Amino acid sequence: MTFELHRARGPFNAAFFSIMGPYIEWNVRHHKGRVFAGLPPTVVELGSGVGANLRYLSPGSTLIAVEPNVAMHRRLRAAAGRRGVRLDLRDRLAERTGLPDRSADSVISSLVLCTVSDPAAVLAEVRRILRPGGTFRFVEHVAARAGTPTRALQRALRRPWAWTFEGCSCERDLAASVRAAGFTRVELEPYRLHSPFVTFNTQIAGVAHA
């Protein structure tokens, strides 16, 4: 299992999230602020991208960043330097982080489980690397309720959306996936954004406890 960097999509996504990051962050800031509050000194992040979540780490913290899109790496390193966060950058997939069993106090992700090839495998990997009592904290976009206009639009745009955003799916019931992953407790809140990116507007945020 490998990540194949498309010569156009990889750089496009790095540029897109650098430009649109502040707008996306403004929309989800309250939800991220709640679930990412009080992160420990060392955090594992799946799909760190260009560093949108560095603001939730204290200066001097260490981020173990699992990010297979090398087009993101330059911007991620620069963002970590600006935030005073030590960066341990891993060019690996979320399904296979290469980290030891029970080695992480906290794993975070935002807008990542929609893109991975196998969400169940990623969640199993998260459980493997979390210490007992550790937390998986997430903000993700999910499928809208069946029969709604948003759901119909998600279905209509699924192929061009996935092609543009490195396989991203708007049709996953990630709340069910997290609940079925074997965590001891899951606290999860569904919510809706009000943005022009309608297919992106149905989201969840939560904390799963190992």
Rank of each mutant, 00 (worst) to 15 (best):
S110N: 11
L93P: 06
A15H: 14
A8M: 13
V70A: 12
H30V: 11
D173P: 06
I129L: 07
V126N: 09
L153N: 08
N13I: 06
P22R: 12
R145A: 15
R172W: 06
P100H: 10
T148W: 02
V126H: 07
P160V: 03
L111V: 11
S110W: 02
P100R: 15
L113Q: 05
R159H: 13
P11K: 12
C170M: 14
A14N: 08
G84R: 13
A146G: 08
C168Y: 02
A176F: 02
A162M: 10
R29P: 00
H73G: 02
V198T: 14
G21H: 09
G10Y: 05
A181F: 01
R82W: 01
A65Y: 03
F200Y: 15
H73C: 04
H73F: 04
A180W: 02
V50G: 05
M72N: 15
Y23Q: 13
I19E: 10
W26P: 06
G51A: 04
L46Y: 03
P40M: 01
T150W: 07
G21R: 12
R151Y: 01
R92S: 08
L63R: 11
A146L: 12
T135A: 13
P59E: 07
T62A: 01
G47M: 06
A37G: 06
E187F: 00
S177N: 10
R185P: 00
H30P: 00
R155D: 09
P22H: 07
R92Y: 05
P68G: 05
V66S: 04
R192P: 01
